[in-house]
């Protein structure tokens, strides 16, 4: 099943090249030249890419309406304005934001991250070094032996949070607050302890972790 993207861009030159590039990356693209009909067109789409400056309804308004109609739909804003202007107008509703001139690869990367986060484009399974992970489920198996690794609730939550942000560095605070749902207090060792147990289960050599990488001074990362 291919992923369908809603793309609203009034500039034909940009629109045609970007739409072509996205199609080349095996996305189905519904390209509109204005915000009219965006709500209807968004039906069945997994992500919306909106230009901020649109004729008629602007990108912010279209984006907010889309979010209201489809709260789960990730919205990526493309802007040709200065970030100050955009921030003033309020980008809170948008899931991501990219200023022009963007590199098509950058756009594709952002789309991928958003889709992964929303679970819309979850691959059936993910291979991480010696592990095979089925995203969205708690099943982690060792590729070579097929042995299933059992994770506790918190360990699974931490691991899936890291997987949802594959390739991204996450700070201790971000992980703690996402998993425990309360603010992190400096000096709290709970997360470190959980990560240590998690590594003992996942890593071939917990002393030299390959799956959950420590980024010194910042936090942790699981590379894709």
């Amino acid at each position: 099943m291919s992923v369908t993207l809603l793309y609203v861009e009034d500039d034909r030159e940009i629109g045609s090249v970007v739409a072509a590039d996205l199609r080349e990356r095996e996305y189905a693209v519904r390209w509109l030249e204005s915000g009219d009909g965006a709500l209807e067109a968004a039906e069945g789409c997994q992500l919306a890419i909106l230009d901020v400056m649109l004729p008629g309804l602007d990108g912010f308004t279209v984006g907010q309406r889309l979010k209201r109609a489809y709260p789960e739909l990730p919205v990526l804003m493309l802007s040709a304005r200065t970030s100050i202007d955009d921030k003033l107008q309020g980008l809170d509703f948008a899931d991501d934001y990219l200023t022009k001139p963007f590199h098509p690869d950058e756009l594709a990367a952002r789309i991928e991250v958003l889709l992964r986060r929303s679970g819309a484009a979850a691959p059936a399974q993910l291979t991480l070094k010696h592990l095979v992970v089925i995203p969205g489920s708690s099943v982690v198996t060792e590729a070579a032996t097929g042995r299933e690794i059992m994770l506790t609730g918190k360990q699974f939550q931490i691991f899936s949070y890291l997987l949802r942000h594959l390739g991204q560095i996450l700070t201790k605070e971000q992980i703690y607050e996402a998993v425990w749902g309360e603010s992190y207090i400096e000096g709290d060792k709970t997360l470190m302890v959980h990560i240590r147990y998690l590594r003992e289960k996942l890593e071939l050599d917990p002393a030299a972790p390959e799956i959950i990488e420590t980024v010194r001074g910042i936090g942790y990362r699981v590379r894709g």
């Binding site: 940009i14 090249v17 590039d21 200065t82 022009k100 001139p101 963007f102 098509p104």
Partner: peptide, 18 residues
């Protein structure tokens, strides 16, 4: 100004990619 400068740059960049 921002829009008028960035739009052609985006077009150029996309075409460079092509």
């Amino acid at each position: 100004l921002s829009h008028d400068l960035r739009t052609p740059l985006t077009v150029i960049r996309s075409h460079l990619h092509v």
